[in-house]
Design a protein around this nucleic acid. Structure first.
Lengths: 129, 129
DNA sequence: TCTTTTAATCGCAATATTACGATGAATGAA
DNA sequence: TTCATTCATCGTAATATTGCGATTAAAAGA
């Protein structure tokens, strides 16, 4: 136990979860926002910008690269990073496809009630349970 | 060490990371898709659907509830779950705002090259480095 | 009341993630 | 060649997540 049971899920579900994982850390969000803001390739200054140790940033950059969100180009002793537009839009599209509109007439449960208070908000409706 | 240094980041960055974390597991993706598909409140059957132990599902449901994506309503000995449309659309909007269009003229680094091969793809451009 | 059903919670084990210092590899400059 | 710079990787520690059996709590029904 302890490891995600990927075998239970579809490829699509695992992929989507991995995309979400790539942006599921504030440092990686901050890196992406920085790259967007500077609107160019960025060398080195990412470490100064974020405020984590160089080894830690390097690790986050690797994860972003693995997810396809950024790419790095060697320039002398530096490495320049920028958003990878292709993957950026791809991931955006997949995420927004996941967040579909909720179908018309989708039954919505009543606001949560705790167990001990008056319950039974749901059973009367034929769409429910 | 080991814990995310939330203090280094803005509220917005931490919030966004937490939203991503909520859907950064295939089981939680599967649960949300199931709720969308059935288009109604769902009691109990989530455990059968996903194939993880009841305790595990309950934990995932809790996380989705904490993130605001779903809500639960007590119905006798069961609890019925459904998507919370308000938060669903809110989170969708925040995510899609993050995935902005990449600005016109955004410099893109050349495709990645490894360190030992011919480098220097970036330095010539004034937008870069 | 006693039993069954349902789901939350507890406690634990396994694994993953986060963070960082230290080291190493590649490059450019002196 | 030697040194400094830059960044990836290694090793390790701390913390978080995942998963599940066992237990508990609440409610319905016999």
């Amino acid at each position: 136990m302890g490891a995600t049971k990927s075998g239970l899920f579809t490829q699509q579900q695992n992929d989507l979860a991995n995309m979400a994982k790539a942006i599921a850390h504030p440092a990686r969000i901050a890196i992406l926002q920085f790259l967007l803001r500077t609107n160019a390739c960025v060398c080195g200054s990412i470490v100064d910008e974020i405020g984590l140790a160089q080894a830690t940033i390097s690790q986050h950059l690797k994860e972003l690269k693995t997810a396809g969100l950024i790419q790095g180009t060697v320039d002398g002793t530096s490495v320049c990073y920028c958003i990878n537009p292709t993957s950026w839009y791809q991931i955006r599209d997949i995420l927004s496809a996941f967040f579909t509109d909720i179908p018309e007439g989708h039954y919505r449960c009543s606001p949560e009630v705790t167990r001990s208070s008056e319950a039974k908000n749901c059973a009367a409706d034929e769409n429910c349970c």
